[in-house]
């Protein structure tokens, strides 16, 4: 347990008879970057929902380091150290880019604790660094609603980086991106390696190759295989279930 950041033990959810996630057990080490692969309906997003508290599990446990966070309220799980990026990019549309990041830099959850002005020089400097990292320094005074799709995705990544959680869950961070944008996203994600434990759901194999260390393949709500890119590509069960006979293309 010592270096494992996230431990999932027999996690299941039962949607009136349909088990979207069925007895998933996996351990993600501290600082690891884990990719979740799987066909549509394999339970990848549901698994993220279960970890982040959006969906309540019906069986099994989730541990963040040694803390049992199973079925906590979402904002408490977030405070405990799990950040999440959604499939559909969600940012605060009517606030400027900088304001978005300032919101994420508020460390206290409650309304009364935040009844004060300003964010402090440390927080502002941190916001500047994040702006630099996600490449939106020039756009910092723009209203988020006017950003391009790719920029919105990066801003949401920026929110997560500012929030600075121990574990970052990324649900298809390159969905709808051009090749260049995808490449920049992988740079950002690679930059986070080591500082955060990252779990990524992704379909784009080019992106997976750029970032992946270990891959867990889900199929019909269960873990089918686990290993590095090469092992997964050559695993006959994975080929059969997900990749077809053509292999990873």
């Amino acid at each position: 347990m010592a270096q494992s950041a996230l431990t999932i033990d027999g996690l299941s959810v039962d949607f009136e008879g349909f088990k979207a996630v069925n007895g998933v057990t996996m351990t993600v080490d501290d600082g690891e970057l884990r990719v979740l692969l799987g066909a549509n309906g394999a339970g990848k997003t549901t698994l993220m929902d279960l970890i982040s508290g959006k969906t309540k599990s019906t069986d099994g446990r989730v541990y963040l380091h040694d803390t049992d966070i199973t079925n906590w309220e979402e904002h408490k799980i977030a405070r405990a150290g799990i950040g999440r990026k959604f499939q559909i990019p969600s940012v605060f549309k009517e606030l400027t880019v900088r304001r978005n990041l300032e919101v994420a830099s508020c460390k206290k959850p409650g309304v009364f604790a935040n009844l004060r002005f300003g964010f402090g020089t440390d927080a502002e400097r941190n916001v500047d660094e994040v702006l630099e990292l996600i490449g939106l320094t020039e756009e910092q005074d723009r209203i988020a609603a006017y950003l391009s799709h790719g920029q919105t995705q990066w801003l949401e990544l920026g929110l997560l980086i500012t929030q600075n959680p121990k574990i970052i869950l990324l649900d298809e961070p390159t969905a709808g991106m051009t090749q260049a944008e995808t490449h920049k996203t992988s740079e950002i994600v690679n930059n986070l390696k080591g500082r955060h434990t990252i779990i990524v759901v992704e379909h784009d194999m080019a992106f997976v190759r750029e970032i992946a260390e270990r891959i867990t393949v889900l199929h019909l709500g269960q873990v089918l295989a686990e290993g590095n890119v090469e092992q997964i590509e050559n695993n006959p069960k994975v080929r059969e279930a997900y990749l077809g006979s053509k292999g990873i293309s």
Binding site: G83, F86, F92, L95, Q163
Partner: peptide
């Protein structure tokens, strides 16, 4: 400011804690 963030996207605010 956080209130305005909540107005724009409740869920995002919730998952920021």
């Amino acid at each position: 400011l956080i209130l305005q963030a909540v107005r724009d996207d409740q869920n995002r605010a919730r998952y920021l804690g």
